[in-house]
């Protein structure tokens, strides 16, 4: 199955899925970070121009530090996300799904020197397009991936109906699908809702609007209403 998410199994048998982020969203995250940095440099150079050559030296040092350690600082201290990444909803992680550390973050950010060749991250872009996990050279070397941050599960209220136990036992995935149906029922057209419910005709023993109603009842039972 083609997918951009990679699943990892922990020793405890827990399945984690990393939803890998691709070049477009990362490009925009970088643009945001770059704008922030440029604004910072302009403000700094405006302030420091009054202090003459010392200010100039200070500015150069600060620019050097920000340019190289801005991503490292934010990635390590702020849950893998620079402000730009945070805005775009992505973050950096180790390949094994653990929080990114100093070593990996330093490596992946220092290797920007390789990625930004020959022009505006050309190598990084090509590397992202051809590698399996959208990795630029720095990511490959440091063993990191950029992933979408897990969204908090939003429990939309499912439509009220008299709870009724499903006629059969269902696996977790099947229960999840049923709940998805109930939660998203409002966003589907009525025809589509009934069409979907008809798929489970053998189980609910109903058709059309009645089938939808039955599935909603089952979903109510599944979320614990009695």
């Amino acid at each position: 199955m083609l997918d951009t998410s990679r699943s990892l199994e922990t020793p405890e048998g827990v399945n984690l899925s990393l939803r890998i982020a691709g070049p477009v969203v990362r490009c925009y995250a970088w643009v945001i970070d770059q704008v922030i940095r440029i604004v910072a440099y302009s403000v700094l150079s405006f302030v420091l121009q009054f202090t003459g050559t010392i200010g100039m030296g200070l500015l150069l040092i600060i620019v050097f530090l920000i340019e190289w350690f801005y991503p490292v600082y934010f990635e390590v201290m702020h849950a893998g996300a620079t402000p730009g990444k945070k805005r775009m909803g992505i973050r950096v992680m180790h390949d094994d799904g653990t929080e990114v550390g100093w070593q990996a973050s330093l490596i992946r950010n220092l290797l920007r020197t390789a990625d930004l060749l020959p022009f505006a991250y050309g190598f990084g872009l090509v590397s992202m397009l051809v590698s399996r996990d959208f990795k630029r050279l720095g990511d490959i070397t440091a063993g990191t991936v950029v992933v979408y941050r897990e969204r908090p599960t939003i429990w939309t209220d499912i439509p009220q109906a008299t709870p009724l136990a499903p006629a059969i036992a269902m696996t977790t995935d099947e229960q999840y699908a049923l709940l998805q149906f109930a939660e998203r029922a409002a966003t589907l057209t009525e025809e589509r809702r009934n069409e979907l419910a008809d798929t489970l005709q053998d189980i609910s023993g109903e058709r059309g609007g009645m089938a939808t109603q039955r599935l909603l009842q089952n979903a109510n039972w599944l979320v614990g209403r009695r």
Partner: peptide, 16 residues
């Protein structure tokens, strides 16, 4: 997929 619940349809079909 969002509008028509393709993922739901696939799961339902598998269940059936």
């Amino acid at each position: 997929t969002h509008l028509e619940g393709w993922d739901i349809e696939l799961s339902f079909r598998r269940l059936a």
